[in-house]
């Protein structure tokens, strides 16, 4: 009995933590997808930033400074992506696909040892992720704070309208006098900046990071979450609350499948099927709505 309760409690906190973590990445890529962009490098940015955060901690730099530096680096990465996409007119898919390889390679090149956290970072962990026994709770709160800010930006300011307009029809947005390139760059910065924050959280939460695999595949989880949450990959569509719900689907699926003793080997198949079913349902609903018009 007590064993069961403990299991439930720890499951809840793990779930909260995972939702917070995926949610932050999902909201970031969601903003980008709204503008019609895409970012395949999120997982590698998470990995690289987690590694760099660990290295900075090793240098005895105060944890919060190290975290800020890493997030700033993430923003810089986003700036570079945005610049390549808007100025050199490269395809977002390609730019960030290259990023996926480059940042992963850098993470492995910088160090191959596993990194941990120090006492200073433990305090930051208590703040951002959650204290002893309630790990994950604060991570969820952090997500809600970020989601609130991004939600207000996207849905209640003119900047949000511009981001949606760019995703719906970039040329028409430009012809309406919107500085489209600036806003697209902004979306890349938000996406990579939040991915870098994800890297910080990854190291704080797990207290260790493996440069080879830390954060890998997270871009797909984030994109999946955004799509399940109602973002259209064609751009111009999406709601922040939807993104959070979409981000919740994967941790829930993982939880359900592990509770039901589904072997972890087929976990990906379960996730893939869920996404496919979600997409099919969305398409059918839209078709129904279209017929009614």
């Amino acid at each position: 009995m007590t064993d069961d309760r403990a299991r439930t409690l720890s499951y809840h906190s793990v779930l909260a933590g995972r939702l917070g973590f995926y949610g932050i990445l999902t909201v970031g890529v969601g903003v980008l997808i709204v503008t019609g962009g895409i970012d395949l490098s999120i997982g590698s940015v998470v990995g690289l930033c987690a590694v760099l955060f660990g290295l900075l901690l090793n240098q005895q730099i105060p944890a919060w400074q190290a975290a800020l530096l890493v997030v700033a680096l993430g923003c810089l990465i986003g700036l570079i992506h945005g610049f390549l996409v808007t100025q050199l007119k490269l395809q977002p898919f390609l730019v960030t696909l290259c990023g996926l390889f480059i940042y992963r390679g850098l993470a492995r090149g910088v160090t191959l040892v596993q990194l941990g956290i120090n006492e200073d970072a433990a305090a930051l962990k208590a703040l951002l992720v959650g204290g002893e026994g309630e790990a994950g709770r604060n991570q969820l709160i952090l997500l809600l704070v970020i989601a609130l800010a991004v939600g207000l930006l996207l849905h209640f300011t003119k900047h949000g309208r511009y981001l949606f307009a760019i995703g719906a029809n970039e040329a028409a947005a430009k012809y309406a006098g919107i500085p489209t390139e600036r806003y697209k760059i902004l979306a890349y910065v938000i996406c990579s900046g939040l991915a870098a924050l994800g890297g910080v959280l990854l190291l704080l939460d797990a207290e260790t990071v493996n440069p080879t695999s830390g954060g890998s595949l997270l871009e797909l989880y984030a994109i999946t979450g955004a799509v399940l949450g109602g973002c259209s990959l064609r751009g111009g569509e999406g709601l922040v609350p939807g993104m959070i719900l979409g981000a919740a689907v994967l941790p829930l699926l993982r939880g359900v499948s592990s509770f039901n003793k589904v072997p972890s080997d087929v976990e990906y198949a379960v996730i893939g099927m869920a996404l496919l079913l979600g997409t099919i349902a969305d398409e059918l609903l839209k078709r129904g709505a279209g017929r009614r018009e």
Binding site: H159, R161, A168, N169, A173, E237
Partner: peptide
Amino acid sequence: LLLEFAISDNLALPNYDRLSSMGWL
């Protein structure tokens, strides 16, 4: 035009400088 967007969104698009205050719609 933003074809999928409402008429009012289209009409407002180039006029948000007047239709927002400190960025808020």
